[in-house]
Amino acid sequence: MNILQALFFPPEQPGGVSSMVPYIQEAFTDKGWEMELFSLPKRVRSKGTEDVAFETFDWRPFAGNPVVDKYMQTYKDYVWWTRMRIRKSYDLIHAHHPIAGLVMKQLFPDTPVLVTIHSSYEKELTLNGKIAPGGPEETFLTSLYGELEHKLDGIVTVSHSFKRYLSGFVRNGDSIGVIPNGFDERRFRPVSHDNAVSQLISVCRLVPAKGIDVLLQACSELKRRGHPFVLHLIGDGPIREELEQLAVEHNIYDETIFYGYMLHPEEFMPFFDIFVLPSRAEAFGSVFAEAALCCLALVGTDVGGVAEQIEDGVNGLLVPVNDPQALADALEKMMSDPDYRYQMARSAWLKAKSTYSLSRVIGQLQQLYSSLSRVPFSDDE
C-alpha cells in the first residue's frame, strides 16, 4: 500500500506530530509499505491564489479577521504547493492538520483521506490571547470540524477528552476514532543519577497556554520555603522575554536556565529529576509520555490528555490549572522524598512503555488504513 503522510509543519518542527510521524514512516517502511511525508515549507508564503469554497459553511463573512485571512491564505498556499510538488497517486492519504486534510481531499477526491487532529488551534489562540472566546475567528475555526466530517473518510484524535471536545462541533461524534500518540522506545534511555540539588525540567513552546508563568510563581514559592533547585526550560516562543523578566521579578533568574529550542530534548531529559508543565490545555501532551520514558517524575495539570496519562498519586501528580500554590506543593512533595519521586517515575515509565509504544500505534493504524483503503494487502505487509 502506498500512503502519504500529509503534515502541516515540516517534520523537524517541535511538537507531538514531529516526534511521532517520522518514526511511523520508518516502522511501516520496515514492514514493506510505501510511505512518504509531505509538508508546506515555512518559506512558502502568499503564493496561492485559487478561490476556496467549503460545502458546510460560507467562510467569506469571516474574511477581514486577521486569523481567518492568514488561515485561508495558508490553505491557498498549501493547494499551490501540493499541485506543484505531488505528481503521483496514493492508495490513502493520512493528514495531520485540518488544512492538509481538506486540501488533499479537494485535489484527490477519489483517494481515501484520513485526518488526525492533534490539537485545537482555536483553544490555543484563545488561551494565548490572540482571539476572543466566542468571536468570529473561533466560530470559523470550529466550523472547519464539520467540514472535515462532511468531506473526509475518517477523523481520529489523540485522547478521549479531545474527542469529547470535537464531538460538540460535528454531527456524529461517536465516529471519531482515538489513537493516543506512540513513541519509539529506542529514543529514550533513562540514566541512573543522584542530583544533590533537585533538577526540574519543562519542554514546551513559550506561549501563555503552557502556563510557564504559573511555574515560575511556584518556583518562587519553593525558594521562599528554602528548597534549592534548578529549573531548565527548553523551548522558545513569543513570550520568552516576558518570562525571563518574570523570573527576575520572582527572584529565581539565577535558578532558571532558558535554553531555547532544542531538536531532541529526550537526549537531555534523563539527567534531571522532575518533569513539570502546568498547561492550561492539552489535547494529548506528548512531552509527558516522552518524559515518562526518560524515567522522570511527572507533575502536570488536570486537563485534557495530561489527565489521561497521569493518575494522581499513582504515576505522577496533578494540580488544578492556574494554581501556583498547589503546583509548589506538588513539586515540594516530589523534591522532599526521593523514594516517593522514584516510585512515581518508575510507575510513569512502566505505563508509558505499555500504553504509548510505537508498535501499538502501528497496529492501530494498520487496521485503520486497511478499513479505509480500496487496495487489499496481505497480513505480512
Rank of each mutant, 00 (worst) to 15 (best):
L7A: 09
F8H: 15
G15F: 05
G16L: 06
S19W: 01
V21L: 14
Y23I: 04
W33K: 14
S39Y: 11
L40I: 03
P41R: 07
V44Y: 04
R45S: 14
E50Y: 10
E55R: 11
G64K: 05
P66M: 12
V67G: 12
V67W: 14
M72T: 10
T74D: 05
D77K: 06
Y78Q: 02
W80G: 06
W80D: 09
W81L: 06
M84S: 15
S89K: 14
H97G: 03
L102K: 03
M104W: 01
P109D: 13
D110H: 12
T111D: 03
H118C: 00
L127I: 09
P133G: 10
S143E: 10
S143F: 04
L148R: 08
G154E: 08
T157Q: 06
H160T: 13
Y165E: 13
L166H: 06
L166D: 01
S167H: 08
R171D: 08
P180N: 14
N181S: 12
E185H: 14
F188K: 13
R189Q: 12
D194F: 11
D194L: 15
V197T: 13
I201D: 02
C204R: 08
R205P: 01
L206I: 02
K210P: 10
E221V: 12
K223N: 07
R225D: 14
H227P: 09
V230K: 03
L243S: 01
Q245K: 14
Q245P: 04
Y253M: 13
G260R: 07
F268S: 09
M269T: 04
I274F: 02
P278W: 00
R280G: 05
A283G: 05
A289H: 05
G300W: 01
G300N: 08
D302K: 12
V306G: 00
V314N: 06
V314A: 11
V319Q: 01
V319L: 00
V321M: 01
D323P: 02
P324K: 09
A330C: 02
A330V: 03
L331H: 03
M344L: 06
R346L: 13
W349N: 10
K351H: 04
K353P: 00
T355W: 11
Y356N: 09
L358P: 01
V361T: 07
Q364E: 12
Q366D: 14
L368F: 06
Y369P: 15
S371H: 02
S373I: 08
V375P: 00
